[in-house]
Simulated scan of single mutants.
Amino acid sequence: MSRDDRGAVALLTALVSVVLLVVAGLAVDIGNTWARRGQLQVQADRAATYAAQFLPADDDAARLELAKGVAFYLACHPVLGQRQLDPTIPACPADPSSPTLDTYAQELLDEDMVTFPVRNQVKVVTPWARVDYG
């Protein structure tokens, strides 16, 4: 080994280590984002399934009752990070017909987070969830 090649291996190792740590950090953050997205999808599916017992929702009162079912499920089964971004989500009440859910249920209807594509279907869009990156 010639005299001017000293330290090249150490420098190359340091550079490669930094690149690998950055890639590993991005992989963890992207994986966390995809996992949270999957949790939100499961929450939407389960909230729609829970609220489907109130179908068909032909009038405004029936739609509000169904939205209260969705609000109950979202309040009692939040995904990590949702309460940080959506403070309007109430605490989980003991009863799905609780009047504390009325305002939130109406908000879900007004913001088209609970819609009815056809008479016997309900579509649920979950509130956003915050993902903290390392």
Rank of each mutant, 00 (worst) to 15 (best):
K68G: 00
N32S: 10
S97L: 09
Q82F: 00
G25W: 07
L40R: 05
R37A: 11
R83G: 00
V22E: 11
A67V: 07
L101N: 00
A57H: 07
L12A: 14
A24P: 08
L12Q: 14
Q41E: 10
L85R: 13
A71V: 09
A57M: 04
A8F: 13
A71I: 08
E107M: 13
D110T: 11
P90A: 09
G69Y: 03
N32A: 15
Q41L: 14
D58T: 14
L15H: 01
T100I: 10
D45N: 09
A62L: 11
L15M: 15
V22W: 15
G81K: 02
W34I: 13
T88N: 07
A44G: 11
L74Q: 14
A47N: 00
Q106M: 11
L55H: 04
R46V: 06
L64I: 10
V9I: 12
Q53A: 14
D58C: 06
I30S: 12
A48E: 03
D29H: 07
Y73I: 11
A51K: 00
P87G: 05
L64W: 01
E65F: 14
A48D: 01
A91R: 15
I30V: 15
D112H: 14
R63F: 06
T100Q: 14
E111F: 11
S97I: 01
W34A: 14
I89P: 02
Q39V: 02
L15W: 12
L40Q: 04
L66T: 09
D59A: 05
G81H: 03
A62H: 10
P90F: 02
V79S: 03
P87Q: 04
T49S: 10
T115Y: 03
T13S: 15
A27Y: 06
V42G: 03
T13P: 08
G69H: 05
L85M: 07
Y104R: 03
A91H: 07
V70W: 08
L26V: 13
Q41P: 02
T115V: 10
G25N: 13
V23I: 13
P93L: 07
Y104V: 04
L20K: 05
Q39W: 00
P56A: 02
A44L: 09
Q53C: 07
D29P: 02
L11S: 15
L12V: 12
D86I: 05
T103H: 08
D29N: 12
E111G: 07
T115D: 05
Y73G: 10
Q106F: 01
H77N: 15
A48W: 04
A75F: 07
L108E: 03
R37S: 12
Q106H: 11
Q84V: 06
A52K: 00
D59Y: 07
I30T: 12
A62R: 00
L74V: 15
A8L: 13
G31T: 08
A47G: 01
P78D: 01
P93E: 04
N32H: 09
Q41C: 06
A62W: 01
W34P: 13
A24K: 09
L108C: 07
R36D: 09
M113L: 14
S97N: 14
Y104F: 15
A8K: 12
A91Q: 12
E107A: 12
V22G: 11
A14M: 13
S97Q: 14
T88Y: 02
Y50P: 01
T115G: 09
V79N: 02
P56K: 07
Y50S: 02
K68R: 13
A35K: 08
A57N: 03
A8I: 09
A27T: 13
Q53F: 08
V114A: 04
P96R: 08
H77V: 11
A62G: 06
A48G: 13
F116Y: 12
